[in-house]
Design a protein around this nucleic acid. Structure first.
Lengths: 228, 228
DNA sequence: CGGGGCCTTGACGTGATTCAATAAAGGTGG
DNA sequence: CCACCTTTATTGAATCACGTCAAGGCCCCG
């Protein structure tokens, strides 16, 4: 058990843990461990009982959910320095998604039991959780809308704009993983994503590289999206 | 201000308030009021500052969200005895959706300020909130998957099955509102919903009435859905 | 009886998927 | 460094599901 001190400190980058006192964090650290996993490793599967949540030190985690007909949808792509599966702890329930590794992944595993125990003792920390859950709620509400009413073009454009820095001006968006996974995240097929990228390139709105997309004029992209 | 005692007791039907002590509930009641609204009335709009959440005594509330291109998506249809907009309180933020009345609506308005004050004083009640938020999170994760990978047929079937009692055997599903609104909820057009219903009728899987749908064999419907 | 919603049905158009072929990139071992 | 293989990305043509447009039916209410 336990984790090296240095990587553990990166938890302080999250809104959830930032305000935690050092000694409380140290108590939690004693129950945590780091995991090293390869591409394709499955951390947990949809429907299995949840006992811990995770923090990504490196690599990417794909959270996906399958339909009755066997179709897979990537609900979210978790980047380094992000937490995931936190909400599962508050219902003693099951993971609603499957977590798969993309690239070599280093994770911190945080068991629910000691974590919840600390929250019970220090209720003021609980409010941070509510904020976190609310943010995810908003994210998902947005996601539902996007998936149901927006075209493939609009979804791709909106994804790119989401990743852009907030000020306007040339921006570079790093792609989180393979284009196939990005397509699944956007609820479209890889072929369709290719075609959308081709249109964006043709219209001079984006330059598509292997692992990144350059956007010379985000404002123009915003306008382009609205017309689709 | 304040609400008649009788309708207020119906809050106890919600998982959130069920465990609340009577005196605590009475304190909250003093800050609440009932609202009576007509079809089409807008309770709050997407992006406006949130100051209260609501409990539905009668009528239906449509929660919708608009896209850049002006498209409307009904994210959720709130039924009597349900709470909504609760999560907004934990971020002091804005409503992520627009709330519109469907039918004559009676609501209880519960301001965030006194509610949050009570939670601060009685932290054990906060855990109930986490559970509620987690459930909504799961609901939305499911919704995202449905909207992005499932066909119109599958979405309608899954909606009907969700409304069925859990045991198998003939069931009647009450439609929450106009078919047009249900279509918006499912992310399809009214015409498409009509055609799906027609297919279900043709295949003997459902009898469609004006305000309800009869399902003689839910298990058969489940199988039908998987094939689409 | 007549008008206005709401629902249904049909013909047609469009955008996304599917299938298939090709091209490019990355990894491996000689 | 190059030949070879695997994986990933692109492109084209055919197909399919859903949306759009338009007409007609049904039901409620005056």
């Amino acid at each position: 058990m336990s984790v090296d001190k240095l990587p553990f400190q990166r938890l302080l980058h999250t809104p959830i843990f930032k305000p935690w006192p050092a000694d409380t964090l140290a108590r939690l650290q004693a129950h945590c461990q780091t995991l090293n996993l390869r591409t394709g490793s499955v951390l947990f599967t949809e429907g299995s009982a949840g006992s811990a949540f995770y923090f990504v030190l490196s690599g990417r985690i794909l959270l996906s959910s399958g339909s009755a007909a066997g179709q897979e949808k990537i609900v979210e792509i978790i980047q380094p320095d992000q937490l995931f599966a936190l909400a599962v702890g508050f219902l003693g329930k099951k993971y609603p998604v499957t977590a798969t590794c993309e690239g070599r992944c280093e994770l911190i595993e945080i068991p629910f039991a000691p974590f919840l125990q600390i929250l019970r003792e220090q209720p003021e920390l609980t409010w941070l959780m509510m904020g976190n859950l609310s943010i995810r709620l908003n994210f998902l509400v947005n996601e539902v809308r996007r998936m149901s009413v927006e075209s493939a073009d609009a979804r791709v454009a909106e994804y790119l704009l989401d990743q852009c820095p907030h000020w306007d001006g040339p921006a570079r968006v790093e792609l989180p993983c393979t284009k196939a996974a990005l397509a699944a995240r956007l609820g479209i097929k890889p072929e369709t994503l290719s075609r959308v990228f081709a249109r964006l390139r043709r219209d001079g709105l984006a330059e598509i590289g292997r692992l990144h997309v350059d956007i010379p004029d985000p404002e123009a992209l915003r306008a382009w999206r609205s017309g689709r």
